[in-house]
Write a protein that binds this DNA or RNA. Structure first.
Lengths: 188, 188
DNA sequence: TTTTGTATAGTCATAAATGACTAGTATACT
DNA sequence: AGTATACTAGTCATTTATGACTATACAAAA
């Protein structure tokens, strides 16, 4: 789980120094370089909490005949909360949850050959994710350390998967040659 | 978010090939090498869902005068579901959420010197987490690919943090020497 | 001119997840 | 003899999160 505190910190950070309205916030939250995901309905709930706590105020503005914008602004109390949470969270390490890993623990239960097929599919997905991130990061490349982290992690994941596949393939070959009764290292 | 499907897959995997009771499951879930976390109350809810779907059966056993155990066993339907989900999930890549990164995006808003203090604290925590994982992984080292991933990721995180701190320190020095009006590379 | 897309606002019913709590036995420590 | 810890079972009220849904205005494409 990503804890609600991190979601709050993230939203506060988006509002810090740049007042924003719900629609804009949600495009930011949906951006591929967002470190955590906050659904739309959830974002509104969190904003409502903020207002309850006096951390934000809302101002309605209008541009022509477009639907009016409700612009959220941090109050001094909100700024303070942001700073407090930021300091606290910067100093803290929390173990990351790795949903992608769950299935890997049960690798042995499936036939090797099939596993290789499945992992190859996954690798393709991981690679296209890296590409997507690189593209999306192009804009603010080098500006935000967080984005750098995301990219490097994605690359790490890709590398790890590649290695795993290589490892399993090697084993598979060794197995099959063993079954066939001859050692491939003596061939060719 | 870790999706409920991953939680279900994880629980099914724990039950696969080894019937288990609530207490034991919860110690497994609380183990430091668990890739995702599932709270106790939540685990019971998921087990209840499994029973509704006919994926598990429960048998009460008793050992001496101890409180009776309620042992959960996968039914054939449960095994089937596990296999289906496992295959699907093995082939799929899902972007990981990085709650630890959120605060890093707002690094620039705090004075450098303070940031360095905070990050150093965090690094210590990250390091002791690596140590904890290494210890906990000792048991099943090399047996589960997932555990290998967790360890490597933790090390990756530690390295990244170390590099970040070095980077920021270098900048801080450059800044202060610049303010002081002389270039440190010409000294000593 | 109709359709599609994007800019704007959300809401609502439901599902998932949490933290704190209860209740009892056995064993090991002080 | 008393106390703490591990073994066993959960439950329950509350909070958090989700997906699907509704509305309106404008711009560009078909």
């Amino acid at each position: 789980m990503v804890y609600k505190d991190d979601k709050e910190l993230f939203l506060l950070g988006l509002l810090h120094g740049h007042d924003s309205h719900g629609y804009e916030l949600n495009t930011l939250l949906a951006h591929p370089t967002a470190p955590i995901r906050i659904g739309k309905a959830n974002a509104y709930q969190i904003l409502a909490r903020f207002e309850d706590r006096g951390w934000t105020t809302v101002t309605e503005t209008r541009d022509g005949n477009r639907p009016p914008r409700r612009v959220y602004t941090l109050t001094p109390a909100g700024e303070e909360a942001f700073n407090r949470m930021l300091r606290s969270r910067l100093a803290t390490h929390a173990p990351t949850e790795h949903a992608n890993v769950v299935a890997l623990n049960f690798l042995e239960l499936l036939p090797r050959a099939e596993v290789l097929v499945l992992l190859t599919q996954r690798l393709a997905a991981a690679q296209s994710y890296v590409r997507e991130l690189r593209l999306a990061a192009g804009d603010d490349a080098g500006q935000h350390y967080g984005v750098d982290y995301l990219l490097r992690h994605a690359e790490f994941e890709e590398r790890w998967l590649t290695d795993l596949i290589a490892d399993l393939s090697a084993q598979a070959e060794a197995d099959s040659s063993h079954e066939a009764g001859h050692d491939p290292s003596t061939l060719a």
